[in-house]
Design a protein around this nucleic acid. Structure first.
Lengths: 228, 228
DNA sequence: CCAAAAGTGTTAGGAGTACACCCATGG
DNA sequence: CCATGGGTGTACTCCTAACACTTTTGG
């Protein structure tokens, strides 16, 4: 039987990988650490789980503290607990992924001196702790989930154009998609409600759409998904 | 800032969902609890993570303690940390899924009085703690993974017949598959090495095969998977 | 009338599904 | 020779991917 020293208590944190599409790229919100260890390095936002607080509740609390946003898509990613991942002692962290719509992303990309800013995931600084590993895994999961769920809609405002939707897929997957094939497949799913129009930059005005969760429920039962 | 009482230390456990195919059914290894809470109830095997021990290392250690097997497929499933999930206090558990080949599954299905036995997942007793939720989620994940990875081979001995492979898929997915279509798709993947023959029960001798990991590596790069 | 982005169909190839009979062995 | 499980091919449908031009607006 393990004695008390062996099954020592452990500190548990949650870390957040907060994604948004900005400037047609997949970006992640990072915090510059003000204290040791890794002082001055960029890191994923996160913090300790409080007594009597659920893991997801802790993640939501941290998310609101960092960004001010609520009611966002949040999903548990993985739990990292290697001894030595935190030089201060045994810390197990439960990583979560949050997706924020572009129009709700709170922070402008500031100067390098800012304490928090968005970074493109494929053009970012080295991170503190094992956060590079966590972020890489989050990107991989997001790519996979994009193909068989509706998480892509979480990265858009409520009303959006088909081009904007396609740009989300292209930004996350990191490759171009064929416009006609993309539109046909989306249309085939029948989960979008067309609205009125609105012009944007440059050319011909684009029709706006809304995601129809009701229709999607029926599709999920049939196992119909997002094959891009 | 949270004070000491708020970010109280927490005990961290690992719980194991150990699957095997026995009697052509998907079964799970359960332990009868000898002590409170939930004394006499069946539960997933598990235990505390030791000081200085990684999470996966703890899972492997528990697995070997329970079953004596090593070098099995092991994958982190999800982390459960609701306050109140354990009446003794705050316990966060990291759940793992292990897959054991039928010929390495150590225990015979014993009497009800045994401390550990295999149960069919769809015909099992109610479990202690939140273990029903954990097990249900594990089954769901296994079903999904079966369709786009090679985890199915982990549930078979090194040498197996195509019928045995098909039975694994049928047991996990819970539905019958067409024999000709199944064989064609497996052959198309080209990841099996045919061996010599061996008869088994009843009729015509069946050819044995081995899984060829080398060939599979190439397929993974191309995104070719298991579409059943 | 020019620039800019929106919108729209057809074709060819590959994958999935449904389906029934003969073969090799042991007893 | 019979019981038992092993092994094989075809036809139809549907999904995927490749591919280029016209339309609508603002300036």
């Amino acid at each position: 039987m393990p004695d008390r020293a062996q099954r020592a208590d452990t500190r548990v944190t949650v870390d957040l990988v907060i994604f948004a599409i900005r400037e047609a790229r997949l970006q992640v919100l990072l915090i510059r650490r003000a204290v040791a260890p890794f002082e001055g390095r960029w890191a994923l936002p996160g913090g300790f789980v409080l007594a009597g607080e659920g893991l997801e509740a802790a993640a939501l609390r941290e998310l609101e503290e960092e960004t001010g946003v609520r009611q966002v898509y949040l999903e548990q990613l993985y739990t990292f607990g290697d001894p030595g991942r935190d030089p201060r002692g045994r810390v197990v962290t439960v990583a979560y992924v949050a997706l924020i719509a572009a129009d709700r992303a709170p922070l402008e990309a500031g100067s390098d001196a800012a304490a928090a800013r968005w970074w493109p995931v494929d053009d970012r600084p080295p991170l503190a702790f094992d956060h590079d590993k966590i972020l890489d895994y989050a990107v991989e999961r997001l790519r996979n989930k994009l193909e068989y769920t509706t998480v892509g809609f979480q990265l858009l405002p409520r009303q959006f154009t088909l081009t904007a939707l396609q740009q989300v897929y292209e930004a996350v997957l990191g490759r171009r998609l064929d416009k006609r094939n993309f539109r046909r497949k989306i249309a085939l799913l029948g989960i979008l409600t067309p609205l009125r129009e609105r012009r944007t930059e440059g050319g011909r005005p684009a029709r706006l759409y809304e995601f129809s969760a009701r229709r999607f429920e029926k599709l999920k039962d049939k196992g119909i998904l997002f094959p891009f």
